[in-house]
Write a protein that binds this DNA or RNA. Structure first.
Length: 105
DNA sequence: GTTGTGACTACCA
DNA sequence: ATGGTAGCCACAA
């Protein structure tokens, strides 16, 4: 498989799906795991297209500094924080302590 | 072909 | 820590 088609999107979704419960990964990390280290932005662009009831753990994907990609206080930010804390990923201020929760694939 | 945009990063003052 | 800048690249207009 994998020639050069735009199924990169599906590859990204597939990788995101493997992030274990209670762990988090960065956009850049996902991009690297997909074999496209320079596509961190595209990972984000792709997440945006996820359907409402998706099974994908999109909330486990954070920025490289451990903060959600949304402005603090926004609805999306709050939802993400809630989903993470539900699985014992506790925030410290505006972000998650990567030392403790970062996923080592 | 060009331009603008964005759920990104790394680097530097 | 905080803010600005530059590099990045798929995608839509």
């Amino acid at each position: 498989m994998n020639k050069k088609d735009s199924s990169l999107r599906e590859l990204i979704w597939q990788v995101v799906a493997t992030i274990p419960r209670g762990k988090v990964a960065s956009y850049g990390q996902i991009a690297r795991l997909c074999g496209y280290p320079s596509h961190a932005r595209y990972v984000g662009t792709t997440m945006k297209d996820l359907p409402r009831g998706t099974k994908l753990p999109w909330h486990r994907v954070l920025r490289s500094n451990g903060a959600p990609a949304f402005p603090p206080g926004s609805a999306a930010y709050k939802k993400q924080k809630e989903l993470l804390e539900r699985e014992k990923v506790i925030f410290k201020g505006f972000k998650v302590p990567l030392k403790q929760y970062q996923w080592d694939a």
